[in-house]
Design a protein around this nucleic acid. Structure first.
Lengths: 348, 348
DNA sequence: CACACGAGATAAACCGCTTTAGTCGATCCG
DNA sequence: CGGATCGACTAAAGCGGTTTATCTCGTGTG
């Protein structure tokens, strides 16, 4: 194995032209006649020549790769169907263009910063996806500083020069609230995601807004997207005073753990308490009762994000790539929601 | 931004030596006196010089990156805590050595082969991790053919020149079976993973063996690691003739979906049916009843696999890197298992 | 004292591709 | 009809490192 590969010089010799001509021909650049171009392409094909990416990278200063830095605790990643689907979408676009995806999984903020810095310093990637936006996200400034092109998933709350690919979570949550209100619920609570995340904040806001529109006042407690956090929050809600008859969770894992809490407290879902989730994980439709939840197209998000990032990188300096909006998240009705229990005044 | 970066020539000039000397000094190679070396390092530090990876790559023909090709359906990836943890472990090792991880997610066998080929052809990576081994896995031959170093997660059933990092799932399954037998169960079934996967086969075999050792004969039905598959298999088992009193699942997702099936059939877990899972997903401890399952150290697996692969790549030709064994998977006892129901003869 | 030797360092080749500066005819134009 | 112009193509200079072939001393040896 590993016999010497052919180089551009071999192709040039075989086609009887110079190296430069070969380069022009292969990159579809003007400067060679159609006839010569054909001859060169034929020669390259006959030799089975493939360009050496490293050499090309050295002259063009292009990595032909995009980066993704994931700063999540492994247990959060493990249960989240978002990333696999997102990445699959990204790959669909990248594979066709001979681009690669460089992944970094980190756990601390320092490691995250260092991750982006390394990607830029080592010229590993030509651009990055910024996911899991946080309030006052310092990554925007960091990326500007190190001059690394980026695309953000949703719009940051700080000024950002980068294009955003927007998928609105809020309609899904709003629909969930409306659905519950329609069923007669008035005491509805929300178990939110971790404070700093913009998507958690958006879901929280959507909940509050939708409740307001219904003339209701909803309680919000903090969760952390983990099963343990979901259990604790749910327990607090269901054992505390003025128990809600419905809970809107910011993700499925927390909602799923609520099923256990309810069971332990002797409460039936949906008869005593209705719940909704967010993500539509594989399991959501296969628990008892099947979970009413909210679904977003993570794969599509990945595709569009990848295309946007590539356009930003390849495009001419001035061509400013604009934001794109995707179809918003939508409600998936299943069996974890039901009309309010008939006895509104249970003191218990 | 993007002001010209310093090159090795700048460092050489500042230290008053030649480019070659700088290269030697920075790579800890003999050929420069300690004094000169110090001067060169100082000059490099003062300029804040960082080597250009692409240039280095061109001369050394090294990508300083490792690859991982994942051929799984997104819904399988989304619920599986294995990969995030595995990747996190890998990264821990790679980050410290300035190596990157190139990820590819594909869905078809052709795309998978093409993925490996692309990684090799484009010199994206110096080696790859081979996960989710299958029977007669053609990837071993493929990787040999294209000359891409690899490390396999567990040992393939075909002759393989690559080192394997072994984590035995079987003791975990065996322990689960013994635990159930100890509780008085005799009618124990297994919902297996997809046939072609070696890990699924190993778990199945471990189940059969352990049952045999207990003098029992266990029924095995096929699952596919998805929630839908788990539900179907469980339904078949619980509604069919000669209902088992315990089911050992090949993963958590299927086990979790069994909880719903049992509920729908009016069966209580663990009173009527005991179940065990595999993976110890985040949710496992937070469902009702909390799931008895099997846990393996995916992160550790990633670390060792990465170290092994790097050793294989960097090491001298002859140094043959050997297999490594990790602590086997172990049983995590929770509440989804209980002694056999007292009425063994319920006709229903 | 001539000579071999090795450590320390340099100059230059090289990795394989891109790109710039030129060369060379053929064509256009006043 | 002579010079400007243009298209096709070549030679060579990068890109920023690594590596090899050489050169230069100072030193130990017979």
């Amino acid at each position: 194995m590993a016999e010497r590969r052919f180089t551009i010089a071999d192709v040039a010799r075989r086609a009887g032209v110079s190296k430069g001509a070969v380069s022009f021909a292969l990159n579809g650049r003007p400067g060679v006649s159609d006839e010569t171009r054909a001859r060169i392409l034929a020669a390259a094909a006959e030799l089975g020549w493939v360009p050496n990416r490293q050499a090309r990278a050295l002259s063009t200063a292009r990595a032909s790769a995009l980066g993704l830095v994931l700063a999540r605790a492994p247990e959060l990643l493990g249960a989240d169907p978002f990333f696999p689907a997102f990445i699959a979408g990204v790959e669909k676009v990248l594979a066709a263009r001979d681009q690669a995806l460089v992944l970094q999984v980190v756990t601390t903020p320092e490691a995250e910063r260092e991750g982006y810095r390394r990607l830029a310093r080592d010229r590993r990637v030509d651009g990055v996806f910024v996911v899991d936006l946080r309030r006052d996200d310092e990554r925007i400034a960091l990326l500007e500083e190190i001059g690394l092109p980026a695309v953000t998933l949703n719009r940051p709350d700080v000024p950002s020069p980068f294009p955003a690919v927007v998928l609105d979570d809020r309609p899904g949550i709003a629909a969930a609230v409306r659905h519950l209100v329609d069923q007669g619920h008035t005491k509805i609570a929300h178990v939110a995601g971790p404070e700093p995340y913009l998507h958690a904040a958006a879901r929280r806001q959507a909940f509050t807004d939708a409740m307001g529109e219904a003339g209701l006042d909803g309680r919000v407690v903090d969760g952390d997207f983990t099963a343990a956090g979901g259990r604790d929050a749910t327990r607090r809600l269901l054992t505390g005073p003025d128990r809600p008859t419905a809970i809107v969770f910011a993700n499925d894992v927390m909602a799923l753990s609520a099923i256990a809490v309810a069971a332990e407290l002797g409460l039936r879902i949906p008869d005593d308490v209705s719940i909704t989730g967010f993500d539509d994980t594989d399991l959501a439709g296969y628990v008892h009762p099947a979970l009413t939840t909210v679904r977003a197209d993570a794969g599509g998000w990945g595709e569009v994000a990848a295309r946007t990032l590539l356009a930003l990188i390849d495009g001419p300096e001035d061509a400013d790539v604009t934001d794109t909006a995707l179809p918003p998240a939508e409600l998936v009705l299943r069996n974890s929601t039901a009309p309010t229990p008939p006895t509104p005044q249970e003191t218990q």
